[in-house]
Amino acid sequence: TFELKGKVGKVVKIAEDHYLVEVEGDKWIAYSDEKLSLGDRVMVVDVDGLKLKVKRIP
């Protein structure tokens, strides 16, 4: 999972307290300090167990 840091993915689902992002064909639970929208491109900035911390990228 640490090899996911720096990888780019996209938001595929928005849940009440987390996001579902697809990175390299796999779906992961993710969270972010900013509000994300469906389809946003994101970069993995940290890995916390099986959850990814992501940030939006242009």
Rank of each mutant, 00 (worst) to 15 (best):
I14T: 12
Y19M: 14
V11Q: 00
I29K: 14
V54Y: 00
K35V: 05
S32H: 10
K53D: 06
E34Q: 13
I14V: 10
E22F: 09
A15G: 13
A15H: 08
K53Y: 15
V21W: 02
A15M: 07
S32K: 15
K7S: 05
S32W: 06
W28D: 01
L50N: 06
V47I: 06
K27W: 08
V12K: 07
V42L: 04
G39Y: 13
F2S: 15
E3K: 01
G9T: 03
S37I: 13
R56G: 06
K5Q: 13
G49E: 06
L52Q: 01
D17E: 10
I14H: 11
V8P: 10
V45W: 12
L38C: 07
A15K: 08
V23T: 02
Y19Q: 07
Y31N: 05
K7W: 02
V42C: 07
D17W: 13
W28Y: 12
K35T: 06
K7I: 01
E24R: 02
V8E: 15
K10N: 13
D33A: 11
K10H: 11
D40R: 05
E22C: 05
V47N: 02
H18Y: 14
H18P: 02
I29M: 08
L36N: 03
D48S: 11
G39A: 11
T1S: 15
H18N: 09
I14F: 09
K35Y: 10
Y31P: 03
H18F: 09
K51Y: 12
L52V: 04
I29S: 14
A15N: 08
E34A: 07
L36C: 08
E3A: 01
V45A: 06
V11A: 06
K13L: 09
K51D: 05
K10T: 13
L52N: 01
E3M: 02
V21F: 04
L38G: 09
K53Q: 08
Y19V: 10
L38W: 07
G25Y: 14
G49Q: 09
K7Q: 05
V11P: 02
V47D: 03
L52T: 02
I14E: 08
V47H: 05
R41Q: 14
V42P: 02
G25K: 07
D33H: 14
D40W: 12
V12R: 13
S32M: 10
W28M: 03
K13A: 06
H18T: 13
G6P: 00
E16H: 11
D17N: 12
G9N: 00
G6E: 02
M43R: 03
R56E: 07
V44I: 05
D26M: 13
E34Y: 11
K27F: 10
Y31G: 09
P58Y: 11
G39K: 10
D46A: 04
G9F: 02
E22K: 05
V21P: 00
D33R: 13
T1I: 15
I14R: 08
K55A: 13
G6N: 02
G6D: 06
S37E: 12
L38D: 14
L4W: 02
K27L: 07
L4D: 06
K35W: 04
V42H: 01
K35P: 06
I57M: 13
I29H: 12
D17H: 08
E22Y: 08
K27G: 07
L38V: 08
E3L: 03
K35M: 08
R41K: 06
G39W: 14
I29L: 09
A30H: 00
D26F: 15
H18V: 12
E3D: 03
H18I: 14
K35D: 06
D40K: 05
L4K: 03
